[in-house]
């Protein structure tokens, strides 16, 4: 029976449950005893998923008190000797996991996207060089095997046990009020507001001269794809859109994963604004517009029709 620890972050409880999928791929869910560590309140909503639930202490631990978290996780490992420790690759997770790995003098693989388990030989797969390359990593040493996982990479739905066992572990520093001695403290947080720079978007829906008469429609497509709207120079020239969303040599250079170019011919000055784009869908009346030579899919036809039909199809979703 393998022992596995999963750190449950306060604001991401459901994502922590998804890590059970990783455990399953590592050992087979029935071969693993999974421990969940986090705030008591949060753990209460996760009954049935973890074999053991360990609340973080008798007071709520500041999620950003990374030093204390590291101490507590070290204590847990000393007590239970886990085979593996899984942490979500969130902002906190990415700071916590490496610290813990160094503390435990063990190997850590970041942002895994896949697992190849062949008995005791386990390969953790992760992207490198901005995804151009995939690497298979093995952990050396005696363990525990540590890994961070991005949200939504794995999925897990089912409960695994009828009752989770609660372990009210006594940490060495339990009861000691943390905040006053903290050398680092979260003071406040606010939502990021307003316009996000198109350079930060993973998906861009861009309109060119052909979309002048219906440019506003691009926004609806962008919305369902969680994307941003961008434009070629011709649209900016006609003052249909502000310059800050202009893609091109004299505008912004973007590197989204997906670039949907509607009514854009693909003049070199525009193309020079695209760097390292993974996928391009070009929608154009002329299937031989230069931009089509760099597209994965060329949609020959009217851009407005394309947007309307695609929107309908996406909203319809998966029907049998």
């Amino acid at each position: 029976m393998k022992k596995c620890l999963i750190y449950v972050e306060k604001i991401h409880p459901r994502d922590a449950v998804d890590l059970l999928d990783a455990v399953d791929r590592l050992y087979g869910s029935e071969n693993a005893k999974v421990y969940g560590f986090g705030d008591e309140e949060v753990l209460q909503s996760l009954e049935g998923y973890f074999d053991v639930l360990i609340p973080s202490g008798n007071e709520q631990l500041d999620p950003y008190n990374i030093k204390t978290l590291t101490n507590r996780l070290e204590e847990l490992h000393e007590a239970f000797i886990f085979d593996s420790i899984l942490i979500l690759a969130t902002h906190i997770g990415r700071m916590l996991a490496p610290r813990l790995a160094m503390r435990l003098q063990t190997g850590l693989v970041a942002d895994i996207t896949g697992i190849n388990a062949d008995g005791d030989r386990i390969e953790l797969i992760r992207p490198a060089y901005s995804g151009k390359l995939m690497a298979a990593i093995t952990i050396r040493g005696t363990g525990p095997m540590m890994m961070t996982v991005r949200q939504k990479v794995f999925q897990w739905e089912e409960k695994r046990v009828s009752n989770s066992q609660w372990n009210l572990f006594e940490f060495k520093d339990s009861g000691v009020v943390q905040k006053k001695n903290a050398s680092m403290e979260l003071l406040r947080s606010e939502d990021k507001e307003g316009f996000t720079d198109i350079r930060e978007s993973e998906i861009l829906v861009a309109g060119g001269r052909g979309t002048a008469s219906y440019f506003v429609e691009l926004e609806s497509l962008a919305k369902v794809l969680n994307a941003q709207v961008a434009a070629s120079r011709k649209i900016i020239d006609q003052q249909i859109a502000p310059r800050r969303i202009q893609v091109g040599q004299s505008g912004k250079t973007v590197n989204p994963k997906l670039y949907i170019a509607i009514g854009i011919s693909g003049a070199i000055q525009h193309i020079e604004g695209l760097k390292n784009v993974e996928h391009v869908i070009a929608v154009n009346k002329k299937s031989r517009a230069p931009i089509c030579s760099i597209a994965d899919i060329v949609v020959e036809g009217d851009g407005k029709e394309f947007i309307e039909k695609l929107l309908r199809r996406i909203r319809r979703g998966d029907e049998i």
Binding site: Q105, G107, E123, I297, E300, G301, R313
Partner: peptide, 27 residues
């Protein structure tokens, strides 16, 4: 503490472009 056992390209095929229309099949 970790070792790269092997590396590989994510997409082993060249980018093959396809052309469709704005009919139902294309969408």
């Amino acid at each position: 503490m970790t070792e790269v056992s092997r590396t590989f390209m994510k997409e082993l095929v060249n980018k093959e472009s396809i052309t469709v229309k704005t009919d139902d099949e294309g969408i």
